[in-house]
Design a protein around this nucleic acid. Structure first.
Lengths: 114, 114
DNA sequence: GACAAATATTATAGAAATTTAATATGTCAA
DNA sequence: TTGACATATTAAATTTCTATAATATTTGTC
C-alpha cells in the first residue's frame, strides 16, 4: 500500500504564500495530466514500457497527437523514453503519477462503473 | 494516514477502454484543480470554511476571478458553499482533493523548498 | 546511397480557458 | 425603501490548448 504523507495543515501556508512558486509548479504538473488521451497513455504505461506505434494503435490516436502528448509528459518529467532501433519506448519516470492515477481510478472507474 | 487504494494493474484497462467515459471525467476533474490560484484557494480551505471576501484578500485575487474559480470548483463537486447573511462560506466537499493536494504538497513544497 | 519505417517537429486553424471590466443580484441596516 | 456591502453573472479580449496536416529527422535494410 502506498501511503499518502500525512499533511500538517500548517504547512499549507507554503501554498498560499505569495512568493512561492509551488502552486504554479503543481498546477503545471496537474495540467500535463489533465487530458483524456494523456490519462489513457499513462494507464497504458503503468505495467511496462510501450512503443509509440503500439500506443498509437492501442488508443486509436493519430501519430502526431500521440507524439505531442508524449512530449508534453516527458517535458514535465512524468515520462522517460528509450530508443531501440527505430522504435522509441516510453515509460513512467515519476512514481507520483501512479499515486494520482490510482486515486482517479478509485473514483472514476471502480465506484460507479459497475 | 490516508491510504491510496492498491491498484490492480489489470483494472486499468477500464481507463484505456474506448467506450469508457472515465478518462474524460477524470481529466475534467484534474482540470478543475489545475490552476495556480485554484490550488491556492483549495489550500486556504483545507482547515475550515472561508468566506469569499477573505479568500479575495488573502490571495490578492480580484473579486470576479475568485468567484469564477470557486464556481468552477463547486460545479465540479470539489467545493460546497453556505450562505450566512451577506457572506458566502466555501468549504471542501470532496475529500479526494485533500489526498491530491497532499501529494502535490509533498512533491512541490516539502522537498525542494528548503 | 536510396528507400521505407518510426517518430518528431512545425505550422496553423479552431476550441477552450483565463482575465478584466462592467453590471446584476441578494442581503442587511438605517 | 434606500444605500451599502458581498457575491454572482455576463461579456469581450486575450491567452493557452488541441487537432490536423504537412514536413523533417533518424534508423535500419537493401
Amino acid at each position: 500500500m502506498t501511503q499518502i504523507p500525512q499533511l500538517d495543515i500548517k504547512d499549507l501556508t507554503v501554498f498560499t504564500d505569495d512568493t512561492s512558486e509551488a502552486p504554479a509548479q503543481a498546477a503545471q504538473f496537474l495540467k500535463s495530466l489533465a487530458h483524456r488521451d494523456r490519462l489513457k497513455l499513462l494507464c497504458s504505461l503503468v505495467e511496462n514500457e510501450v512503443s509509440v506505434s503500439e500506443l498509437e494503435e492501442k488508443l486509436g490516436i493519430s501519430q502526431s497527437a500521440v507524439s505531442q502528448h508524449l512530449l508534453k509528459l516527458k517535458t514535465e518529467g512524468v515520462l522517460k523514453s528509450r530508443r531501440d532501433g527505430r522504435q522509441i519506448f516510453y515509460s513512467i519516470a515519476d512514481p507520483l503519477v501512479l499515486d494520482i492515477v490510482s486515486l482517479l481510478y478509485a473514483r472514476f472507474c471502480a465506484a460507479g462503473d459497475t
